[in-house]
Design a protein around this nucleic acid. Structure first.
Length: 539
DNA sequence: CCTGACTCGC
DNA sequence: ATGCGAGTCAGGG
């Protein structure tokens, strides 16, 4: 039809605009259905052949505005028009895509015209601020990749999800009854207010922490109260099940489409560090650490005849830190493929690598973990539940053994203070005006941001580059496998069974080769019929 | 519809 | 008072 012809014409020519991903999503979906009808006509049978790759957008003023100031909470055309053109206008369809009332020919035309005038102005700033590479080589090429991922979606086994839901509900009911017995009354356990009254007024348990508005009942408090009264542990388990039921079982079920798949939206202009985020639903926070939450991953499945192949970067943030700091010991650990937490334990506790105990390794892991966040002795003490003095000794010992890391952190803060901003490997920038603030806690918070952003943001740069490479390689090699999810350091691909070995090799090659750091990038690959049971493929 | 408390992920 | 996100629920407007 005319519409199909129009979409095909659009898909052939690079476009510039404002927030092009939704349009690319339409184009990707049309390309997918076009490829399958074409193949059906030509009786190729089975799987659709390769769709025409969509061109990289010529420009996107929303992405450009995000790169110029990634901290803003919105990137509306009206704000950009004011900032870059000095024009004051009412919101139109570009800023209210969900509002059909503003989708009038006049306003559509006006937004298009604004966008056309904005592009040269805003792209001049991109060039002037050294953001050309991250714009042209990362964010713009990523648009068709994200659109394809959103269109692909991930298959969900609704019956499996519902089975888990029933298990959680049964256990939840059991816990609620026992909680009411111990409380001596029924109440809404989900209400922090009512729970606070029961715990601290009726049962007279000690108040260990308060919030702005009353008693704190968070997990840390309940864990402390577990020593005082059996109700605390029951509430903890009840609350975790309530979370699983509400957010994951019911929340995810609402998003299963008629194709039996969940199609999330990846936000490209939200995280100040350059990471992606995932909404409606968020598929980047599916439980993994504890059962029974982890079992939800059984509901994320590969289509019949397919496998999920998951590839994750091993310790990418610590590797970025090793690269940036040039620290000798950290370099050595990665160059020799050592267990980096064991190596750190060996350094802080002064014992040979082979004699590191699991407890020492656990402490070292917490120290390593906190590095990228600008951790303080106070924070480490809390995380490990040890004294502040002891935490301080661990940190001092760490920085003695890794002086390059200490130097790097001091230098990063010094430079941030001088320039008022920090940058990533690819030149992505983040302004940090608070780094010169005279109130200590505000300034210290800014210093942690200054430490964290280059590390988290560079890892995000590398992952985005890897996604572009993997997507391109899959198409180029004529494979039917498609990227379906990204979870910050992990890519999930859905592949026909017979493609799995090639896809595993491709993922390792393209991800490890995405960027050349001074230490190797290492990728671990796993495959399985669902996201829970996955076998390593690191042969 | 918004905010705060809470909890999930990396 | 260790970084970055999103969603749910309760409770109030």
């Amino acid at each position: 039809r005319d519409e199909a012809a129009l979409l095909a014409a659009l898909a052939r020519r690079p476009m510039a605009g404002f927030d092009l991903k939704p349009l690319y999503r339409v184009l990707a979906a049309a390309g997918q259905s076009q490829a399958s009808t074409r193949d059906a006509r030509e009786e190729k049978g089975g799987r659709p052949g390769p769709p025409e790759p969509l061109p990289v957008p010529a420009g996107d003023v929303k992405l450009a505005a995000y790169l110029l100031d990634p901290v803003r909470n919105r990137y509306h055309l009206v704000d950009l028009a004011r900032q870059f053109l000095g024009v004051e206008v009412e919101e139109g369809p570009a800023d209210r895509p969900a509002d059909p009332a503003c989708r009038t020919p006049a306003l559509l035309g006006r937004d298009a015209a604004l966008c056309a005038r904005l592009r040269p102005a805003i792209e001049a700033e991109i060039a002037a601020r050294g953001l050309e590479r991250v714009y042209r080589e990362i964010e713009l090429p990523l648009v068709p990749v994200l659109a394809a991922m959103e269109v692909a979606g991930i298959a969900v086994d609704r019956e499996q999800l519902e089975r888990l839901g029933r298990q959680f509900a049964a256990r939840s009911e059991e816990l609620a009854q026992r909680i009411y017995e111990l409380a001596g009354e029924t109440f809404n356990i989900n209400s922090t207010q009512q729970l606070g009254q029961v715990l601290f007024e009726r049962l007279k348990l000690p108040v260990v922490k308060k919030t702005k508005t009353g008693y704190s009942t968070d997990a840390e408090v309940l864990e402390a109260l577990a020593a005082e009264h059996p109700i605390a542990e029951l509430v903890l388990e009840y609350r975790s099940l309530a979370k699983l039921r509400g957010t994951y079982v019911e929340g995810l079920a609402e998003h299963i489409g008629p194709d039996g798949r969940i199609h999330t939206t990846f936000q490209q202009t939200v995280a100040a560090t350059g990471r992606l985020s995932s909404t409606q639903p968020n598929l980047q926070n599916i439980p993994i650490r504890d059962e029974p939450g982890r079992s939800l991953r059984r509901a994320f499945v590969a289509a019949p005849g397919h496998r999920l192949v998951a590839a994750d970067y091993s310790q990418i943030e610590l590797r970025v830190l090793a690269h940036y700091s040039g620290d000798r010991a950290l370099h050595e650990a990665f160059a020799h493929g050592q267990d980096v937490h064991a190596r750190t334990a060996s350094e802080i506790f002064g014992v040979p690598l082979e004699q590191v105990t699991p407890e020492q390794r656990r402490v070292a892991k917490a120290v390593n973990f906190g590095l990228a966040y600008g951790q303080t002795d106070f924070g480490l003490a809390r995380a490990l539940r040890i004294g502040r003095a002891e935490a301080k000794r661990f940190m001092e010992r760490y920085f003695e053994r890794y002086p390059g890391v200490k130097r790097y952190m001091e230098e990063t803060i010094r430079r941030a203070r001088q320039t008022g901003e920090v940058t990533t490997l690819f030149g992505r920038r983040r302004p940090i005006p608070e780094i010169r603030h005279r109130v200590p806690h505000i300034r210290q918070n800014a210093e942690r941001v200054a430490i964290n952003t280059p590390i988290q943001g560079s890892a995000a740069d590398i992952m985005k580059l890897a996604m572009i490479r993997v997507h391109g390689a899959l198409l180029r090699e004529g494979l039917s496998a498609r990227i379906v999810l990204q979870v910050h350091d992990e890519l999930i691909v859905e592949a026909p069974e017979d493609e799995v070995p090639r896809v595993a090799a491709l993922l390792r090659r393209e991800m490890e080769g995405a960027y050349r750091l001074d230490v190797p990038l290492v990728v671990e690959v796993k495959a399985g019929v669902n996201w829970y049971e996955m076998e390593e493929m690191n042969g």
